[in-house]
Amino acid sequence: MFLINCPYCGERDQQEFKAGGEAHIERPKQPTELSDDEWAEYLFMRKNIKGVQFERWNHAHGCRKWFNMVRDTSNDEIKAIYKMGEKPPAQ
């Protein structure tokens, strides 16, 4: 059970949060300009890395804010947490 440091609320138990998949996949600004393949890439394709992964998390049962997390999926170490819109930390 992770202890997650919500950037708005501080450390809270994992059960207050919801994982939201891979981070930094921006919704295309002009979807109609995209081919089926390009749209499918945005819509369906996710990396699912073993190792350091950038993820979105939501403090669903707390402040309801979304934020980003850098997590090593091989040992669940949370390496960094930063707000939406902020630049990911250098690796």
Partner: peptide, 13 residues
């Protein structure tokens, strides 16, 4: 509500 919040906060801040 969760989905709308998601779009508001992450795609259309």
């Amino acid at each position: 509500l969760g989905k709308l919040e998601d779009y508001l906060q992450t795609e259309w801040p």
